[in-house]
Design a protein around this nucleic acid. Structure first.
Lengths: 324, 324
DNA sequence: CTGAAAGCGCTTACAG
DNA sequence: CTGAAAGCGCTTACAG
C-alpha cells in the first residue's frame, strides 16, 4: 500500500501537504491539491485510518455487543445504527456475547483495546461489577437493562408494555390467561389486574428444568386458558409452536398476544406489543455521538411500546365470559 | 488511558519489557513479568490495538459487507463468522450496502482504509469493475456471486437448488407451477423439466413496474397453478402473504416450496430448499484465515443445497394430474 | 533476560 | 499557502 510519503514524492510536495489535501483542513492552492490527488489516484492511495486514529486519538469506531444474531430485534438496531453513524464518519464494530457475562467481559475488553469511542451493550443484572466500569475510556451505553445508574441507558418501558397488553386481554373478557416470561415486568401485570379487579394470570417461566414445550402443553391442556401472552419473542415462538402442535388455532380456539413485532408476527397477523426499535436506534446513535462529540453527560431515555392489533385476540362473548 | 510507558515507569522497567510481558513473545523472568502485570492492573492498562496494528501492519480486522440486516440469512453468517474468528484474534467489522453498488464501493473503501486484512462481500454482476479490485491490499472474498474470477468465491449451487426443488414438484405430479424469481437459475429449471418431459413453469419477477402483490395475485387466479416455488426468501414471504390474502391454504389448495430455511418457514412447516449456511460460514472463515495467514491462493467452494420436506407440498392424485 | 533506538503512517502546532 | 519536526503507542531487530 502506498503511503502519504509516496504520494508526496510523486507530487513533489511534503507529506504534510498530502495529509492536508485529504482532509481539506487548510486552504491549499488548487493546483497543489490537484497534483496531490492525481498522484494519489495513480498510486491508489488511501489514508491509513489506523495511523490517523492513533495520532488523532479518535478511533471513529463504535462498538455494539449483542446477544446473538438470531434475534431480529437486535439486528434491526445494528443496521439502523450503522446507517446513522456512517455518514458521521463512524464505523461499527460488532461482537456477540451469547448472553454470557464472561464473554461479554472479553468483548468489552476487546472493544476498549480497539479504542472504541463508545460501546453499546446489554448489561446483566446481578453480576459482580466488571472492572472495566471503573476507569474505562469509552463511553458505555446500556441497552434494555439499567444496572449501572451512572451510565447512559436507553430502553423500553417493559412494565408499561405488560400493562397495556394485559389490559387489552382483560378488556376482551379474558380471565384465564397464560403469561409466558415477563418475570421482570410483574408490576405491569399487577397494575392491569388491579384496575380490572381480575385475578393474576398463570405465569410460566423456562427455568431450564424439564422440557418447556411439554410444560407449556400441560398448562394449556389443564388450565385451558382463553389467551396466551408471550412476553418476549422467543416465548412467542415457542407458544406458537406448541399451540400449533396441539391443533389450537387463534383466535378461534385461543387468543394470542406477544411482545415484539417480527417478520413472522406480521406475516401471521399476530397481535403484538411492539417496541419502537427504529426510534430507539436513532436515539442510541444520537446518545453515542453526543457523549463523544459534545462530552455530554450520560442520558436516560425510555420508550413506550404500543399495541398492534391484527386479529389474533378475540373478544369473548358474554356467554364465554361467564363460564369458569 | 494508561500507556505502556506509564506501566513501565511504575514497574521500574522499560516499555519494551511491558510490551513483551503482554504478548509473551520472549521469556521474561517471572518476577519481572509479575511486576509488570501488577503495575498494569493498578493502572488499568490495556495495550492499544491501534498502535499495535499500525506497527505490526496487521489490523486483525476482517470486514463483512452485507445487504441489510433484515435478511436473517446474512446475519447467521455474520454470527458464525464472528464466533470462529474471535478465538483466532480477529475482529469483525460490519457494514451494510443496501444492495447499492455505489454504497458498496464506499464501504469497501472504508474497509480498505481501516486496513481490514480480508473483506467478504456480495459482488454485483454487470457493473463496471470497481477500482479497488486492482491493487487492493486486503484479500477480497466473494460471497454468493462470482463476477471476478481471480478472487476467492464461496457460494451455493443455486442451479442445483432450482433443479432439486423443481424435480420434487414434478415428481409430486405438479405441472402448472408458478416460479417466483430464479432468473439466474434458469438452467436448473430447464434440466428438471427436460428430464421429466414437463413444460416450463410460469416465471414471475418483480421488475419494479407495478405492484408485485397484485401481479402475483392475478397469476394465481388466472393460471391457477397447483404449486408455487419461490426462489428467494423475500419472494417466499411475498408468496405467503398473497396466498394468505386469497385464502389459499397449503398444501390443500396449493403446494408451496421456497428457497432458504428461516425461522418462520420452520415454524409454519414450509418445505424449503435449504442452504447449509453454517457450513458456508465456517468455510468462509477458513478461507479468510488461510488467505491471510498462509498466503493461500484464492479458493472457490460451492455448497449444494438440500431439500427439507415438511408437508407444504402435496402429491397430486391421478385424477388431479389428468385435468389440464 | 532486558533496554535503547528506530519506525509503523499519520496529524498538528510552529514557523516562514 | 507550504514544510520540518515532534509525537500518537506500540513492536522489533540489535546489542549487551
Amino acid at each position: 500500500m502506498a503511503t502519504s510519503k509516496d504520494v508526496a514524492k510523486l507530487a513533489g510536495v511534503s507529506h504534510t501537504t498530502v495529509s492536508r489535501a485529504f482532509r481539506g483542513d487548510v486552504k491549499l492552492r488548487k493546483e497543489t491539491y490537484d497534483r496531490v490527488m492525481a498522484a494519489a489516484r495513480q498510486l491508489n492511495y488511501t489514508p491509513n485510518y489506523l495511523a490517523s486514529s492513533l495520532k488523532k486519538r479518535r478511533s471513529q469506531m463504535i462498538g455494539f455487543i449483542l446477544g446473538d444474531a438470531s434475534n431480529p430485534f437486535f439486528m434491526g438496531i445494528a443496521e439502523e445504527l450503522e446507517a446513522i453513524l456512517e455518514p458521521l464518519g463512524y464505523r461499527l464494530m460488532i461482537a456477540f456475547d451469547r448472553y454470557d457475562p464472561e464473554k461479554q467481559r472479553k468483548m468489552m475488553q476487546m472493544m476498549i483495546a480497539s479504542q472504541a469511542e463508545a460501546v453499546i451493550f446489554i448489561p446483566f443484572e446481578n453480576i459482580p461489577e466488571p472492572e472495566y466500569l471503573r476507569a474505562s475510556a469509552p463511553r458505555l451505553i446500556q441497552l434494555f437493562r439499567n444496572p449501572y445508574h451512572d451510565l447512559s441507558y436507553l430502553g423500553f418501558d417493559d412494565n408499561y408494555g405488560a400493562y397495556i397488553g394485559m389490559k387489552y386481554l382483560l378488556e376482551q373478557g379474558h380471565r384465564r390467561i397464560l403469561v409466558m416470561g415477563g418475570g421482570d415486568r410483574r408490576q405491569g401485570f399487577l397494575d392491569a389486574c388491579g384496575e380490572s379487579g381480575a385475578p393474576l394470570p398463570v405465569f410460566f417461566h423456562d427455568d431450564g428444568t424439564g422440557d418447556p414445550q411439554k410444560q407449556v402443553e400441560e398448562i394449556l391442556l389443564q388450565k385451558k386458558p382463553t389467551a396466551v401472552f408471550a412476553v418476549a419473542n422467543w416465548y412467542g415462538r415457542q407458544a406458537y409452536m406448541t399451540m400449533r402442535r396441539l391443533g389450537l388455532r387463534f383466535p378461534e380456539d385461543i387468543s394470542f398476544l406477544m411482545f415484539d413485532d417480527l417478520q413472522w408476527t406480521s406475516m401471521m397477523a399476530v397481535d403484538v406489543v411492539a417496541q419502537p426499535i427504529r426510534t430507539l436506534a436513532q436515539a442510541l446513535a444520537e446518545e453515542a455521538v453526543s457523549l463523544i462529540q459534545d462530552n455530554a453527560l450520560p442520558g436516560r431515555t425510555v420508550f413506550k411500546p404500543r399495541l398492534i392489533c391484527r386479529g389474533s385476540v378475540r373478544s369473548l362473548s358474554g356467554e364465554e365470559r361467564k363460564e369458569k
